[in-house]
Computed example of a mutant assay.
Amino acid sequence: MTDAIRVYPPKPRKVYFYGTCLIDLFYPDAGLAGVQLLEREGIEVVFPQNQTCCGQPAYTSGYHDEARAVAASQLGLFPDDWPIVVPSGSCGGMMRKHYPDLFRGTPQADSANAVAGRVWELTDFLLNVCHIKLDDLGEPTTVALHTSCSARREMGVADVGPRLLDQLKNVTRVEQARPEECCGFGGTFAVRHPEISGAMVTDKVESMITAGAPEFVTTDCGCLMNIAGCAEKAERPLTGQHILSFLWQRVSTPAPGNDDGAQS
């Protein structure tokens, strides 16, 4: 399988939604927003109830046998030939880029390759498969965008977030210094190297504030947790949201005083 040329299919009738651990445990609103945005585009969303971790924490820590055991339980969850949308470049990158290597030479190799070939990062899917058009109903605001390292480098979707945000007429997107730099989370990296991770996220917070952003959005919940947590602990004026939550709020919640379509 190769990503040299990413072929965008026609918009499908159904998709599988892979929710990720962090959305399940900490940011369910982001998962719900992703489902609502897909349904807004006329797509039926199927959520396999037995889904668990994609296996990335074990895999990136060098425990490939353990990662394979976790990942193997995901392979049978998507029996029909529908796209698998993932609201995370990190988990999406694991499934699309690393499952083929993880299962190479095993009885599950064909299944892993088939799953990997159907995985899409959700914002990429909304923009380039659904061709979503966003009518901004919110009040004017200014945001910075952080695209995760996995979304940028593994999934190749660094241009997607800016293109979605730039559709919103009342949103000013500011560019922080060195936007391509890691926020310092890196999954278990933040645990193994807390001092380095802490310095990186502090720099990320300050770069966003310096750019004039009172809030930020990001495509990955790990980055959201790291950046927003650092800002809150340091009492810095910066709040954050997953980009899916932000987009859904902008298109579904009219600004105060906007009575278009209101019923008496």
Rank of each mutant, 00 (worst) to 15 (best):
G31A: 15
E175V: 14
G156F: 05
E39W: 03
D81Q: 14
Q176C: 02
E41Q: 15
E180R: 06
A33E: 08
Q49M: 12
H146N: 14
V171G: 04
A234H: 05
A231M: 04
R68G: 04
A33F: 10
T172R: 15
P237F: 07
F26V: 11
A228V: 00
G257W: 05
L102E: 08
A116F: 08
L102S: 08
C182Q: 07
V115I: 14
G240N: 10
L244F: 14
P10R: 13
L168W: 05
D29K: 14
P140A: 09
N113S: 06
M1D: 02
S245A: 14
R163I: 01
E206C: 01
K133W: 00
F47V: 15
F78K: 09
I84S: 05
H242I: 06
D81V: 03
T172K: 15
R40H: 09
T218F: 04
L164Q: 06
I132T: 13
G138M: 09
P12Y: 12
M225T: 05
L32M: 14
V191E: 00
G117F: 02
A114E: 13
H64D: 06
M155C: 07
L238D: 06
L102M: 12
K14C: 13
K97M: 12
L134P: 06
K233N: 12
V70L: 15
R192A: 12
T239W: 00
S90W: 03
E235I: 01
K169I: 04
Q176V: 00
P162C: 10
L38N: 10
A67K: 10
E215D: 00
T210S: 12
G105Q: 09
A231K: 06
A255G: 01
W82L: 11
T123N: 13
S207Q: 14
P140T: 08
D260S: 11
V35M: 12
F47D: 00
F47Y: 12
Y16V: 11
R13I: 03
G138H: 07
R178A: 14
G105D: 04
D159S: 13
S252W: 08
H193F: 15
V251S: 05
P28G: 11
I243E: 02
C54S: 10
I23N: 13
R163H: 09
G229R: 04
E175C: 01
S73H: 10
G212L: 07
M95A: 11
L247C: 03
L145K: 01
Q249T: 10
P194G: 03
R173A: 12
T20K: 10
N128I: 01
M1R: 10
S88M: 05
E180N: 09
E139I: 03
E195V: 13
T253Y: 01
Y18T: 02
G240D: 05
A114S: 14
L38R: 07
Q241P: 00
P10G: 02
G161P: 02
D135Q: 13
G105W: 07
